[in-house]
Design a protein around this nucleic acid. Sequence first.
DNA 1: CGAATAATTGACTGAGATCAACCCCCGTGG
DNA 2: CCACGGGGGTTGATCTCAGTCAATTATTCG
Lengths: 248, 248
Amino acid sequence: MTARRHTPLPQDENEPISCSPDLRLTILHGLPFFAGLQHEEVEAINRRFQDRGFEPGETLVHAGDEAGYLFVLAAGKARVSRPTLAGKEVLLDVLTPGEFFGPLVPGEDTYPDTVRALTVVCALAISSAEFRDILNTHPQAAVAALDMTASRLQAAYKQVHQLSAYPAEARIAAALLTLGEKLGRKSSEGLLIGIPLSRENLADMTGTTTETASRVLSAFQKDGLVKAGRGWVALADLARLRELLEDF
Amino acid sequence: MTARRHTPLPQDENEPISCSPDLRLTILHGLPFFAGLQHEEVEAINRRFQDRGFEPGETLVHAGDEAGYLFVLAAGKARVSRPTLAGKEVLLDVLTPGEFFGPLVPGEDTYPDTVRALTVVCALAISSAEFRDILNTHPQAAVAALDMTASRLQAAYKQVHQLSAYPAEARIAAALLTLGEKLGRKSSEGLLIGIPLSRENLADMTGTTTETASRVLSAFQKDGLVKAGRGWVALADLARLRELLEDF
DNA sequence: CGAATAATTGACTGAGATCAACCCCCGTGG
DNA sequence: CCACGGGGGTTGATCTCAGTCAATTATTCG
């Protein structure tokens, strides 16, 4: 028996922000990139971006496609995954507003990863060359980009470490805790992970299979560590979940 | 029978560059960070760094230590590894001249990783705050730092992907090819990997054990793909190694 | 209500970890 | 020079975690 029928996920908390022109400026101002800049500077930068909206599930870019544009995620969440030759997908990251992806140095000619919208997404697109120009003329933006990239690098290192050293159970616990930190919101079920999260997704990000993810999650649920249903997971006992990680 | 007795590694090609004061300027000028700057600017920057030399095997920073300084690797090579609670080490990266590590944003208070010199190393140390100041005032340096970090992020993603999707044999082949690209030099044995590389090292970076690394390497050797001995590996047949990777 | 998709559960299998014995270098000191 | 010792490397036997295959049950949606 699962914890509750229907999804407890805010199903249309579709953040009402779309890509409407009048909101772009506000959004840009709020981005860590341009936090310290003058209004006129942001306006000038604003003109250099195109905006594009995406529905949940839509693909922003497809791995292998020509890397025409660099995207800055203005609103919403997106998943970055890399396809395996065997047809599987490995989930590498979840992007939140302010983060960017795409060809940073002009040499990269195809996207290595597929990026898909998890919620309603507003993305700002720009050519690699123009983005570099902005970075070169606005040191704060460059430093902000560096900070974000450095923190993503740390997250990736953490993932490498865990994949190398931990068994499946611990990796899934770790993934849940990371997701909870990044995307968690309080709910009656516990710390609810704020994106649709299937067993398959969880398997993709921990290097396991749906079956293993399901078994581990069932075990966790029986022990009262999590509550889970079709497409969602909530963390019911953070402390014991962390504790479980220590044992490796 | 191994391919050859004694190590074919250039055992004292200890790049004669030390941290001597008169060479620091030259080194700084050569770093991608400061490539486009005026001589006077580099001189000013130079004064803000301390230099520190390390012998092969010496530890630059230890995981868990207070993250006092940020280091820029001026000369030599160093390995970045993260210890497991179980006492193992996962090799995350090999740093080459120009790359940096340490607390980039002032919040990071302890080093997450251990960094050890692989060769004679000259490192330039600076406080996080001062480094940020340099980045803020020299956009090109910030963009260079971003480029390096972005490329390390890509490498880390690649590693995550491989750990999740490939079996041990393929991961080892991939690791060898990556090392060959980054550290390879031509030799009579083939493309010789220019750092001491034990089976254990290889295991650490591919999430396997010494025994598995040894078995796989033996198999590769029997097939003429590599030549290996105590502490070194050379790639004898790049094409077939790459081909082997395709089959997954 | 069905049809489609997600999740669960069980039985079987296999890649690779673990445990253990042994060999080879290579440095050291008598 | 040789005896010794230790660390890296190899090889084999066994065991186990998790992947695979397969059947069944939930849940959502048209």
